[in-house]
């Protein structure tokens, strides 16, 4: 697979409040998720990377030849798909895609072939003649995505959340050498084929991690709610192997555990050994602020390290 850089940043500050410049390179065939809701910079960063919004300072280059993303030549090489997509009243899916195809420069003859393939690939065969504004949000997003595919861009920037049906299509795109950047508000919407996840806060990208690292962090930070009948004494609950931060809640306990399957096995054994029934078990994923805190490097100024030359001004 081609592993050239499709998009890279240079001294990029998204907002005036950003601490360090964002150094990001998105390779061909890779997918990066900008994780964060509307209160974070993730949606804005997506717009900036798509060339739809100006950053506070810095540059975004396209491809190996360092083409400025806002230049006329970069047009059609980066496509942005918004989750608030709408069409003029009366515009059908086929009407919209035909217009997008004409704008992308496909001839009338080619358009017919391309669109028929696109309908099948995006599962839009049943709504070709439906009005775009009357479609379900998922199908509307797929229509916007299909239109974005028409110019055959190098980089896709997607504003999520988007339907699960899109995940295999994004995987196909990556296999074809496209770079995909997706801004997503929640962890459970991240596609499995994601290579990297940029964890964003209100001013900055806090850290860029791999999917496995994020998954591990979620395992560590998740909280389990369990309720027994009859109620289990706290001392017994605290003896559960691996359980941390045990808190009493109504009819049960809330605790942390490093592994979900091990926790469930241990809970079942504990209940059986104490002649109790598990009447409720709930897994609560970590909140976004917990995740940000987890991935924040601890660089608080502390006491001078006697083994560090910088701290001793040597």
């Amino acid at each position: 697979m081609d592993s050239s850089v499709q998009l890279s940043t240079e001294e990029l500050y998204i907002t005036g409040r950003s601490g360090d410049p964002l150094e990001l390179a998105v390779l061909a065939g890779s997918m990066i998720v900008l994780l964060g809701d509307d209160t974070t910079i993730a949606p804005d960063l997506a717009l900036v990377l798509a060339g739809r919004k100006s950053p506070a300072s810095g540059m975004i280059h396209l491809g190996d030849n360092n083409l400025d993303i806002t230049s006329h030549n970069a047009r059609d090489r980066v496509e942005y798909v918004s989750c608030n997509f709408s069409c003029p009243q009366g515009m059908t899916v086929s009407g919209h895609l035909s217009l997008a195809s004409a704008a992308a420069g496909h001839s009338r003859k080619d358009t017919r072939d391309i669109l028929s393939q696109l309908y099948t690939w995006c599962s839009l065969e049943n709504c070709m003649d439906a009005e775009v504004n009357d479609l379900s949000p998922d199908d509307r997003y797929l229509t916007a995505f299909a239109a974005a595919c028409l110019p055959i861009p190098d980089v896709f920037v997607l504003q999520g959340p988007f339907p699960d049906k899109l995940h295999p299509l994004l995987e196909d795109l990556c296999q074809g050498g496209c770079a995909v950047i997706a801004s997503l508000p929640e962890i459970h919407t991240i596609p499995q084929s994601t290579d990297r996840i940029a964890i964003c806060d209100s001013d900055d990208v806090r850290q860029i991690v791999r999917l496995q690292e994020l998954s591990d962090a979620c395992s560590i930070l998740m909280r389990l709610h369990v309720r027994f009948f009859p109620v289990l004494p706290r001392a017994v609950m605290e003896s559960l192997p691996g359980a941390r931060d045990v808190l009493a809640i109504r009819g049960g306990y809330e605790f942390r555990h490093p592994g979900l399957s091990a926790a469930v096995t241990n809970l079942v054994n504990l209940a059986r050994a104490n002649s109790r029934q598990i009447v409720g078990l709930e897994v609560k994923p970590p909140s976004y602020s917990e995740l940000i805190e987890y991935f924040t490097p601890d660089d608080e100024p502390g006491e001078a390290d006697l083994f560090c030359a910088e701290d001793l001004d040597i």
Binding site: R75, D76, M91, L99, A147
Partner: peptide, 17 residues
């Protein structure tokens, strides 16, 4: 109008301009 904004959204960033 919304219709004009929608059309601008579809066409402005394309090669057609």
């Amino acid at each position: 109008s919304d219709a004009r904004n929608d059309l601008a959204d579809i066409l402005f960033r394309t090669k057609a301009g």
